[in-house]
Design a protein around this nucleic acid. Structure first.
Lengths: 203, 203
DNA sequence: TGCATTCCACACAGATCGGTGTGGAAAAGC
DNA sequence: GCTTTTCCACACCGATCTGTGTGGAATGCA
């Protein structure tokens, strides 16, 4: 996590297309390893040596692919942003299903919280990039919820989506501390009450 | 954070009362310094040298007072547990006031999340102690809220207190990521709706 | 004054951290 | 075949980490 003297070493041949394609699996292997370790053990707790070992490559190759650990962490976070799969269920049910999905992830056993929040917490003072990625992701998800709520006929979908998002975050933290998947269902109950009060759910 | 070979070095004189009293300010100075640094920069990011320097003492004295960094971290967390001040306001207002207090802390500018949650996140795999302390604290707070809600006439104070607690956690995370104190007020709005639906607030 | 206790300054151990330099083996393209 | 590119094994750098050992200065108490 030191300063970075700008390397990356441009290949002699100008056309990098083939080269990039060739290099992709390498970057993917590293990212997959980083994802496992960073998420499970924490970013600060995992050194680059451990990532390289987990990926089955040398540290040298890691540093030929990513210029620094900081860049690797940023790539790890960006790769964690995945769009929500589309669904043709009723919008209100889709919102409630978010809590059920959370519950399933809790019950899976390897839950370690939200990777974005964890990164911001761990990196503390030097987390500008992580914070930006995290804020982007959270806002994108909230908008998605707001759109669903609007279709469901909620009175103030913007405000309600914020409330729902708060409950989702709260459920994650609750699971982290209490290690009890039931928190997701409590949050679902609260969400249902709020949605009902906002007219987004038949009473 | 290595293994700890059990020192503490019993003083020759058996009567430790005077000694303990004398040593208390030392432990307090260390804890105050640790609190500042651990909370602001994170536990893993702060070395014992930094704590000693912040406390204005030598590293040797720190290790004469606390046997290891792990013990210091545990003391830091335990010291963060403070009882909520009693109030003679109406119980429902006391619950809503929790969100206002959170909002005030957000606006103060030095907010860095919940120290217990942060500790569990940072320590990841070796966080048994931290998790236990955190769970204790959260449960104690939830009980306090449940008692208030029962006095306020809520239908199911236990369930509602869980919902309120989720909103408080969510507000903290939201502030951490978005850096916008308004999240506390959003959470307050949601809490008010839930309390109204549960009959704990006049409509 | 003499004695006991605190405490510090300093040096050090052993480990791990992020990051680099190098020489050569393996593999791919021609 | 040869050349170019990838990749690895390995050694190394300086910094920082937790934790210890030690001798002596300051301090409090009699």
């Amino acid at each position: 996590m030191r300063t970075r003297p700008a390397q990356v070493k441009i290949p002699p041949r100008i056309e990098g297309l083939i080269r990039v394609t060739r290099r992709l699996p390498m970057a993917d292997r590293i990212l997959a390893a980083a994802d496992r370790l960073f998420y499970r053990k924490g970013i600060r707790a995992v050194g680059v040596d451990a990532v390289a070992a987990e990926a089955g490559i040398s540290k040298r190759s890691l540093y030929d692919t990513f210029p620094s650990k900081e860049a690797l962490v940023a790539a790890y976070l960006r790769q964690r942003i995945r769009p929500l799969p589309p669904s043709d269920a009723p919008p209100a049910q889709q919102v409630l299903a978010l809590f059920d999905q959370l519950h399933a992830r809790f019950a899976a056993g390897d839950f370690r919280g939200c990777p974005f929040v964890n990164a911001v917490t761990e990196l503390a003072e030097d987390c500008k990039t992580a914070r930006a990625i995290a804020a982007d992701y959270k806002e994108q998800r909230r908008r998605h919820i707001a759109a669903l709520l609007a279709r469901a006929g909620a009175g103030e979908p913007e405000a309600l989506s914020g409330h729902i998002a708060l409950l989702l975050e709260g459920a994650i933290v609750s699971m982290l501390i209490r290690n009890d998947p039931a928190g997701a269902l409590q949050a679902r109950d609260a969400a249902a009450i709020l949605m009902q009060a906002a007219g987004a759910l038949p009473r």
